[in-house]
């Protein structure tokens, strides 16, 4: 048998597993779609508050930190949409499986848990696409008149895809900590809160004091939200450093690869502990 067809077969197999897993997750969550649809209310309400805050702030000025009111609102709009697109619960899922012992059933499967979890995320987000993302996007577009059109669509899409993977990897790493800790609720929420802050979900990162911006520049979190949002707007700046879009996306690729390695290492240690303890 030729090498090529062998690889082709393997890819076909993986794709089949991915599709089946994603589809079953989609169906499973379809029963909870009314919960998901809460975003259609919550998202715009939070946005409305931002709208009034920044309108008040800009009442006496036209730019702040290099952003106009319109750009500021666009920032929050895009942050919200990216949040919905890349959301996942890999951390919660994994710690739950480990704590109640049903993780064992995944150890018995011929496919890695990481791959299955990622497929689940895809299924979950596909459902979210029509339940929350498109409705919220339309509201932003037509009610709040935010221009949800990227400056450079190709780069924006690529950056978004990387963010999708990065969010998964970071959450996945937090989930892995359950191999060591009996209760991970605290550390999970601590990490998520700090991550969201460092990713620029609350406020654009260039609002932070200079020293913090420098720190944030070297942390991986900016690549989760801040970078794709900036790529979307078409202009990146942090800690006084301006980078071109291809460059910053390049850095995002590096960050994603680094996270991949970190996740692998952490996973290897965790599994060793899991099988060692024999939980």
């Amino acid at each position: 048998m030729g090498r090529r067809t062998k690889i082709g077969k393997k890819i076909g197999y993986w794709f089949g597993v991915l599709k089946a897993t994603a589809f079953s997750t989609y169906k499973e969550w379809a029963a909870y779609r009314s919960q998901m649809a809460i975003s259609i209310f919550v998202g715009p309400v939070f946005f409305l508050i931002q709208l009034f805050i920044w309108r008040a702030v800009y009442a006496t000025r036209t730019t702040l930190n290099g952003l106009t009111l319109e750009q500021m609102l666009t920032y929050y709009g895009i942050v919200a949409v990216i949040g919905y697109l890349t959301y996942d619960s890999a951390d919660w899922d994994l710690q739950w499986l480990i704590r109640n012992g049903s993780f064992l059933t995944y150890m018995l499967r011929p496919v890695s848990y990481c791959f299955l979890a990622f497929a689940q995320k895809i299924g979950h987000r596909l459902l979210a696409l029509w339940v929350e993302i498109i409705p919220v996007g339309l509201l932003f577009l037509f009610v709040f008149k935010i221009r949800l059109v990227p400056a450079e669509p190709g780069w924006a899409l690529f950056s978004l895809g990387l963010s999708f993977v990065l969010v998964f990897l970071t959450n996945y790493c937090i989930g892995i900590t359950a191999f060591w800790l009996t209760k991970t609720e605290g550390i999970r929420r601590a990490f998520l809160t700090l991550r969201n802050l460092s990713a620029g979900m609350l406020i654009p990162l260039n609002f932070f004091p200079a020293w913090m911006q420098k720190l944030l520049f070297y942390l991986p979190f900016q690549f989760i939200t801040y970078v794709p949002t900036r790529v979307f707007i078409g202009h990146y700046e942090l800690a006084g450093i301006s980078l071109s879009i291809p460059r910053v996306v390049g850095l995002q690729v590096v960050a994603t690869l680094v996270m991949l390695v970190v996740a692998r290492l952490l996973w290897a240690c965790g599994i060793k502990r899991f099988t060692g303890v024999g939980a």
Binding site: L181, T182, K183, T184, E185, G186, I187, R189, A190, T193
Partner: peptide
């Protein structure tokens, strides 16, 4: 976890 959660 308790003190961590309280902080959070």
């Amino acid at each position: 976890d308790f003190f961590m959660s309280m902080l959070i």
